[in-house]
């Protein structure tokens, strides 16, 4: 996905609508809603413009927040992920010549998994901390984070498996 193309705009809108209309209403085991729009941070090419990504990540979180009437937690969490993504890439794929140009151009499964887990875990940690916003409910935050992480990871993994490695 290049930085600004019709396809990217369509995928942006699809992810936001899918999150708001479908995945926010799943309520697995009563309360778990997997977060799918993080796929956007996987699709975005690794060497593309970082400043533009920060703007886009703000926009995507803001859209989800507006449409699902949540307080602003999605905005802050996805904005932070957009800002931290280069660090996560460096950690997951290593600072070598082999640093891939996009998620799909790399073939190492373990590195991809680490990348996905880090991305989702950091997002969920920030998201649930902001939702509960209290030191007293720290156990609840961690519990929710891990359970939602599991389901988000499964969903994102399944979706990504439809795309062939380039």
């Amino acid at each position: 996905m290049n930085s600004f193309s019709p396809i990217s705009i369509i995928s942006f809108i699809t992810l936001v609508l899918g999150q708001v209309l479908l995945f926010n209403h799943l309520h697995i085991f009563g309360s778990i809603n997997p977060i799918i729009y993080l796929l956007f941070f996987v699709f975005y090419r690794f060497e593309s413009n970082q400043t533009f990504l920060i703007l886009l990540s703000f926009l995507i979180g803001f859209s989800v927040d507006i449409l699902s009437q949540s307080g602003g937690a999605h905005t802050i969490a996805s904005l932070t992920i957009g800002f931290l993504r280069p660090l996560i890439i460096k950690y997951a794929f290593g600072v070598t010549v082999e640093t891939p140009q996009s998620y799909f151009s790399d073939s190492r499964t373990l590195n991809k998994l680490v990348f996905l887990i880090l991305l989702i875990a950091i997002h969920h940690l920030i998201y649930f901390s902001l939702v509960y916003f209290s030191f007293d409910s720290i156990l609840l935050i961690i519990k929710n984070m891990f359970l939602t992480l599991l389901f988000s990871l499964i969903l994102i993994g399944i979706t990504l498996s439809f795309y062939p490695n380039k």
Binding site: F58, G71, L79
Partner: peptide, 15 residues
């Protein structure tokens, strides 16, 4: 970072 913290402040105040 400047853009990040600017948007962060914006979203925090929004929230």
């Amino acid at each position: 970072p400047v853009l990040y913290f600017f948007l962060l402040a914006l979203s925090v105040s929004f929230s």
